[in-house]
Amino acid sequence: MKVIKEKHSLLMRWTHWVNFPILTIMIWSGMLIYWASDTYSITLFGHTFVHFFPEWFYKFFNIPARLAEGMAFHFLFMWFFMLNGVLYVLYTLISGSWRELVPQKNSFKEAWLVLLHDLHIRKTAPPQNKYNAAQRIAYTAIIVMGLGSVITGLAIYKPVQFYWLAWLCGGYHFAHILHFALTIGYVLFFIIHIVQVVLAGWNNFRSVVSGFEVVEEPASTIKDNLNPSVKFNNHPF
């Protein structure tokens, strides 16, 4: 029998989807800024593997010679990026849902088993609650990265007034590098995230829009599920 199972709170869904266009605009306007001094590359033993970014890339996204525009967008949407992040973190702390999110003692070991399972090397996946061990690590990391972008961003933005932030980031020059690397990190996260969402299927995707999943359960257990005292049984706290 089909049962509706609540999964994501309204606030989690709201901040997730609000973050998507904001982060897109931040990355885009960030590229408009970066173009003006595009000095980063991945170089090992004198060989440059990737230069950020090749000419065709700039042309494709219409990036060149838009520094002032990029800064104006970046310094408006930074506010929304921060507010949205603060809202999510506060909610997660106050509601207690951080317990389902933050990695646990065994998460790092388990995440490895999840990876092997996802790569079809291992048949069974470790048992999980809302998020599996790999998700706990990834989704917590992305929040920490968001905080990192705000801190390195402020360090670059006002390195004299917030000299202590610049110091914390290893200086103005290094804060730039960190700020850029974090952005590359978001893009990598996004690619894996999309692949995983596609693989996980409709039920999982729907839950991030509508909040619930539909699960098949034998009729006899339904009563137990409605009983709150049983619901919390599988939680160690």
Partner: peptide, 9 residues
Amino acid sequence: DFKCVEGWD
């Protein structure tokens, strides 16, 4: 450390 709006210092 001189800082240019373009991003270099």
